[in-house]
Design a protein around this nucleic acid. Structure first.
Lengths: 237, 237
DNA sequence: GCGTGCAGATTGATTAAATCAATTAGTCAA
DNA sequence: TTGACTAATTGATTTAATCAATCTGCACGC
């Protein structure tokens, strides 16, 4: 009946907003501590279980983190505008294909942007992710300290080099979603060495600021991935 | 200390997964009802407040919906792989610009895909969204029933016409994020009529299956949007 | 001196029972 | 048939108490 029921006051949703307002008001950054559950409950004039529900809601998007025996902390999620669904349900092969095709539509353009805008540091990170085994290596000057570093994924780093944090989140979310589903397939990459060669070629194009080449190499690289994926989906089907 | 602390079992996170498993196991679709809080609590061998925390976590991503006095229902969020951050914090002008530029990197390619793959029905929806005032109109045959229809946004419909649900979610998320931030700016579109004309031109290109034209028109359309946004950001700054 | 290890305090996690509030459905009267 | 009232269902919140994990600091021993 209600159809476009505008959604009324809500529930403990208000509390979640109040908590975000508190974080924003106090200029808290990821890693900073929040008051205790009991303190928050008193401050917002509700009881502990209620404040807890609001915290769980925020925790779902990694906006806060509750560490047993320690306290409540701001999480990296507050800063994001986009994210993968943290509650993924098992998917079918068609969905995996859509995922790869979405990357095919997005990442070539991102590679072109990266070739134009990449900084020296971003280039170094990209090179490291294109080099297997090298891992963290030296990089003594980066001082990445508390920065949360995911495992160096070439495509992630490529998106990071484009200079647009929103685009990075888009690609990061697609990759994260894929990670949750790639278990359904045997191996997405039959020829690992070939994969690395292509990564390296893309890196070189970005290094030389050749946007068109970077775009085209990324496109053909992902087309191969799509073909491999389609073949495995058909096989599993 | 823990650095890469792997994250232990977690907490009531297990319960959230159990609930998702229940949804998946029972083949429940968005709109279907779940057992009552008390029943779930007994079934999963925990007490009501605990199950409630898990439900809040799922509610945050629209995987379930709790309707006071009615019951618990599966939400549309379960099917998504990507979503906008449901807990957005106020942003600055730079972030808004990044958002527009991300759309500029993505939507032209989406328009090209839409021109190639759009169905007759998708074309009709696109035309409707390009025509102001027409609104729902006739369309007696669609029988959209319980389908949750957001207000007809041209760019959203364009993404819907590309045939890739993941790409649709990407664009949808970017638009939703923008909606949460456009209040910071006066008006993103100074000339509404010009905007509509451009939408109509894009529609025509998609109708005629002219992928290159659709791509180019969408690009120039978004470039204008970027310029307008940049001007307003600079002004507000 | 320095590190180990054992209390105690802090803080989140969970339980328990009870009450409040909103929706739904059923019933009865006009 | 229609409308309003009532009662059952179900989620929302409170209160109080207990369990468990983490951190702090002091004492002990090498």
């Amino acid at each position: 009946m209600d159809e476009v029921a505008g959604r009324r006051p809500g529930l403990s949703e208000q509390l979640a907003e109040s908590l975000l307002a508190l974080i924003a008001g106090e200029r808290l950054a990821p890693g900073d501590a929040l008051p205790t559950v009991r303190a928050l409950a008193e401050r917002l004039d509700v009881t502990a279980p209620t404040i807890r529900e609001a915290l769980r809601r925020l925790e779902a998007t990694d906006a806060v983190r509750l560490r047993h025996g320690s306290g409540i902390y701001v999480g990296p999620g507050v800063l994001r505008t986009l994210m993968p669904n943290p509650n993924p349900i098992p998917v079918d092969g068609a969905q995996v294909l859509f995922l790869v095709e979405a990357r095919l539509a997005i990442e070539p353009g991102v590679a072109a942007l990266a070739a134009r805008h990449r900084s020296a540091e971003q280039l170094a990170r990209l090179e490291a992710s294109a080099t297997p085994g090298a891992e963290a290596g030296s990089g003594a000057g980066t001082a990445q300290g508390s920065e949360r570093r995911k495992r160096a994924n070439f495509h992630r780093e490529l998106a990071g080099a484009c200079g647009n944090p929103v685009l990075y989140e888009v690609v990061d979310s697609l990759l994260a979603a894929r990670a949750g589903e790639q278990r359904a397939l045997r191996r997405l990459v039959p020829d690992r060495a070939r994969d690395l060669d292509q990564h390296w070629a893309i890196f070189e194009a970005v290094r030389d600021r050749d946007a068109e080449l970077a775009e085209e190499l990324t496109r053909s690289h992902l087309i191969e991935l799509r073909e491999n994926t389609a073949a495995q989906v058909a096989e599993t089907d």
